[in-house]
């Protein structure tokens, strides 16, 4: 019930944030209206980082505490993170064409490392489908999730470490955090969009986790069913042997 209320609040917040981003804030002086894409683009990218961070932490907790609920959290983070990464890439392309003049540049480090991030976590989700045993699956996924997480800081700092087309951080860097290179209306709109998307993220994480638990319970039920069938067959065989004797 509480989750449902969260869902309604998140919906209202996301719709409001979109209205503010599209119609209320002024466009950027140099980039024009295309700059409005920055709000969902950056919010999506930050939530993708958060999602994959949750996947890494969930994986570590599974390896440490051997509780499959942590693996369910890790799976939820990966699936939702893939969605937000795709949103960040799509928004970036739609922003890049009118402002840079190109949709995509493979040689740009930020773009390439983000594409790698998407590929890594799509791989993570595919890998999970290849393993049937829940505990083996959780362990393999935890390892892949940890290795893939190396790319998160690489994506974020790629704009500082290497020369590229993508601009550096306006807010999320040590020098910029307290002195963002944008007017407060832009920063406020970005923060509002981030808050709205975070509510939607939380709602989706809770629902995806519930689904993961339901699927685990079903797998466990199926396993018990097979176990009972084998036991019954064994008992049947035993009684036939006894009858024959």
């Amino acid at each position: 019930m509480k989750t449902r209320i969260l869902g309604f609040v998140a919906l209202a917040a996301v719709v409001s944030a979109a209205i503010v981003g599209l119609f209320v804030v002024p466009p950027d002086l140099n980039q024009g209206d295309a700059q409005r894409i920055m709000y969902p683009h950056v919010a999506s990218a930050w939530l993708a980082y958060l999602s994959f961070g949750v996947t890494a932490v969930g994986g570590v907790l599974w390896l440490w505490r051997r509780d499959l609920r942590f693996d369910a959290v890790a799976l939820s983070g990966a699936e939702i993170g893939v969605m937000f990464t795709a949103f960040a890439i799509w928004g970036g392309m739609m922003w890049g064409r009118p402002v840079w003049g190109v949709f995509w540049q493979w040689e740009d480090p930020r773009l390439t490392t983000t594409a790698l991030l998407l590929a890594l976590y799509v791989g993570y989700l595919l890998l999970r489908r290849l393993t049937e045993d829940p505990e083996r699956r959780a362990t393999r996924a935890a390892i892949v999730g940890l290795v893939a997480a190396i790319d998160i800081p690489i994506v974020h700092f790629s704009v500082e470490w290497w020369r590229g087309l993508h601009q550096t951080a306006t807010i999320a860097s040590p020098e910029r955090a307290l002195d963002p290179a944008a007017p407060m209306v832009f920063v406020g709109t970005l923060m509002g969009t981030l808050a709205a998307f975070s509510l939607a993220w939380l709602y989706l994480m809770i629902r995806r986790y519930e689904l993961a638990r339901a699927e685990l319970a079903r797998e466990e039920e199926a396993r018990r069913g097979r176990l009972r069938a084998v036991q019954a067959a064994a008992a049947n065989l035993r009684s036939q042997e006894e009858a024959a004797r």
Partner: peptide, 11 residues
């Protein structure tokens, strides 16, 4: 290709 920087400005 126009490489805009991280600064934004309202009109």
């Amino acid at each position: 290709i126009v490489k805009h920087d991280e600064n934004y400005e309202a009109p």
